[in-house]
Nucleic acid binder design. Structure first.
Lengths: 237, 237
DNA sequence: TAACACATTCTTGTATACAAGATTGCAACC
DNA sequence: GGTTGCAATCTTGTATACAAGAATGTGTTA
């Protein structure tokens, strides 16, 4: 649905700023601890403070930034307890999705489509690097969406966004990529065989692996990656 | 925790307006379909448009109002599919909470406290009417909180808020109050007996009952109740 | 009466002005 | 050097001004 039918309003300035800032965070151009003021952003993005504030408050409610009363804004620090809890909640939702999918009248088309990706006939069709990361994310999101509860899908999407930053630091080791293909394939097989219990167990184990990998992350690691990114695409803030 | 220790900032105007509007919605002073402008609210609450907008956008993201481009704001219509999905998600979360509670090292104190309320030694200690409604809400919220995942608790709280409007129209028939006491007591007994499966099943059935009761709700019913409220406390918008 | 044209009013979205207070830099002093 | 006092600057929170366009009411015409 590109450019959906209702052109009630062009994308507002506030939306653009929101998107831009969120991308800055995901791309490590803004990292935890970075401080800035509303005027900084407004100047950089050629806007006034009003839409900037709107975007920032949205990001604040979603957990990405903190506002310090009369002392500027700050990219929120990593909170490892929170990350654990978000993973935990993700597991709860995705397990529930497994059961819901198996209770559907007929298997959703997404199952076949995903199976084509993760059970490729020719192993050479496998993707690499950052593509796998994006594919992995959409695997989980599409499975939850296939369960048919939009509210659940939205909550899950918000969690996925929130965890993207730390997950970007994983997904480097090739053995994990191999394992991801294998585990996704097994989950899909269990779903197609209408075995929700097995699918849920395999999904739990799969996510726990990711959760474990993320535990080693530190602010230093983020700084490193941020530096690498900056060197590759210079001229940014 | 009244007036928590960090007086970093007095409650902002935007916060006050947000709370006031949310209460207006919960108390049926604003009902689905009602239209108004930012200036209306600003004048009524003696503020400027800026904090009003902030509050409104927050309410919009939480699903309570819609902004119509250059045509004012509107209390969001009831969406029965969404209500179904929210109930469904609530069941998912509360079932998960049952299992989490039983996996804790030792039973949380909340269990005993809740048991004192819902398994009262003397049946005469039972609460009535709107008190039961509030107690029921906190029963569910506190159980989820007892599971120990703050992120889950927050998501659940948001869902609870969102469903409060329709749940207020339930909880009138005395037989439902009796049943609520019985069902809550049974859930707590199952938890104390460390039987998560049974607790989850009973919780599911309990919530489904509420979900069914809510299905009969219509906009007309809300209008009626709104009129009653207005008559009782006149002088409001 | 019904329908159309036009002008007025109203609405949001954005930009800017102002207020209260936090932060910071610097000079003076021990 | 280390600390204190103070003023200049910066910051958010709120109020207001303006712009583009939607909604509405009114007068006119048939």
């Amino acid at each position: 649905m590109a450019e959906s039918g209702a052109p009630t309003q062009r994308e507002s300035m506030a939306d653009r700023i929101y998107q831009a800032l969120k991308e800055d965070i995901f791309e490590f151009r803004l990292i935890p601890g970075d401080k800035f003021s509303e005027s900084d952003i407004a100047q950089r993005l050629s806007a006034s403070r009003t839409p900037v504030r709107e975007a920032l408050y949205r990001l604040e409610r979603e957990g990405y930034v903190d506002v310090l009363f009369r002392s500027g804004w700050q990219i929120r620090q990593l909170d490892f307890k929170q990350i654990e809890e978000l993973y935990d909640l993700r597991i709860t939702l995705e397990r529930a999705a497994m059961h819901k999918i198996c209770r559907l009248d007929k298997p959703p088309p997404a199952l076949r489509l995903l199976n084509d990706i993760w059970n490729p006939d020719a192993p050479s069709e496998r993707a690499f690097g950052s593509t796998v990361r994006a594919l992995d994310e959409s695997f989980h999101c599409e499975l939850v969406a296939a369960a048919g509860n939009d509210e659940m899908t939205q909550v899950h999407q918000r969690i996925t966004d929130r965890l993207r930053i730390v997950r970007r630091l994983d997904f480097t080791r090739p053995d994990r990529i191999d394992a991801t293909y294998r585990e996704h394939a097994e989950i899909l097989q269990a779903l197609i065989a209408n075995n929700p219990g097995e699918a849920a167990e395999k999904m739990t184990a799969h996510i726990r692996t990711s959760q474990e990998a993320v535990k080693g992350i530190s602010l230093e690691r983020i700084r490193e990656v941020s530096q690498q990114h900056r060197r590759r695409e210079p001229g940014c803030p």
